[in-house]
Amino acid sequence: MDEKSGESLTTVLVAGAANLTIALAKLVAGVVGGSAAMLSEAAHSAADTVTEVLLLVSVRRSGRPADRRHPFGHGKAGFVWAMMAAVATLVGGAGFSITHGLHEIAHGERLSNLTLSYVVLAVSFVMESVSLTRSVSQLRAEAARYEVTPIRLVRATSDTALKAVLFEDVAALAGLLIAAGGLLGSHLTGSALWDGAASVAIGLLLLVIALSLIQANLSLLIGQAAPPQLETGIRAVLVTQPEVENVVELLTMMIGPGAVLVAAKIDFRDEASAAGVEIACDEVDRRLRESFPGVEQVFLDPTPTRRR
């Protein structure tokens, strides 16, 4: 397992441990207080815990080395398991929260002592903040490595484990604030409407997060290209090779978290000999791997530029 996979694994483990503890505490508080919002938060954290388990599998499977049946490695397995994690959030978290919230709005269950719920929400906020701090720390480190802003990196990154944990931590903190608002509203007014509405809002938040992650993983599974900035850098390395006249076509594809395949049709200079072209291809391969650590496969096809 490389250093980057190790960082993602640590991030997932921290988030998973926090979510499991928080889920149990929220469940107890929800049962004691009779709050739909707290039970929705318990379902939220439980779904996040399942998600972390699937992301753990994702990190482990994607880090397996290439073999004869999988010559490009097992990187895309990470996208498959991350997709399943997003579906778990959609079904387990969003589905339960919305349906349970609507049930409380319709039937209006009476809330009892909410002191435990407030304590659990406060402690959960601290624990989720620790998990988010870890995610943001890794994000900033990777952004500095690629010389881009953290926001730009999270939009383009193929490290789906990092993206999922980051999104879930942000959603968790937002969900805690929504739940606290719902409890306070019901506490002050005596109406369960606020608590039920908070539960529905938490479900809709999870729905948006899950659909966003599903879309991102689906794009990677189909064969998403490398970020434009990376493609620009790769093209720059190709055209600066003395034997290269022109880059006829450049194709890239993400074959795993942070792993890139490069295929290019190159118009070499007419005076370049066959041996010179071979040496140039080998040099380009070396330079691309050194300049961009994520480049794992390079295929160059000598192709003349079509003249009109």
Rank of each mutant, 00 (worst) to 15 (best):
L173S: 05
N19T: 15
D285E: 15
Y118L: 06
L111C: 00
V50C: 13
R306L: 09
K26Q: 15
E168P: 09
L220E: 02
S135I: 00
S273M: 10
T303Y: 11
G16K: 09
T10M: 12
L39D: 01
V136F: 08
F125S: 12
W194Q: 14
A263G: 07
V248F: 13
V154F: 10
A264K: 03
S191K: 07
V170Y: 05
A94F: 11
V295E: 02
R110D: 14
T51E: 06
A179H: 01
D2G: 15
I105Y: 00
R286V: 08
L206V: 06
V53E: 00
E231W: 03
G276V: 00
D48M: 05
K76E: 10
R145E: 13
V295F: 05
F125W: 07
T11W: 01
V237R: 11
T189D: 03
V148M: 08
D195R: 04
I151W: 15
L250R: 01
H107D: 06
V284Q: 08
L238Y: 04
S137M: 09
E296H: 02
G256F: 04
A236C: 08
M38A: 14
G93Y: 06
V32T: 07
I151F: 15
T49I: 01
G203Y: 01
V28Q: 11
K4V: 09
G30C: 08
M84H: 10
A272R: 00
V59G: 06
L183M: 12
A198E: 02
D2L: 09
I178Y: 06
V32S: 04
E290R: 12
C281T: 01
A85K: 02
N19D: 13
V87F: 12
E296P: 01
N19H: 14
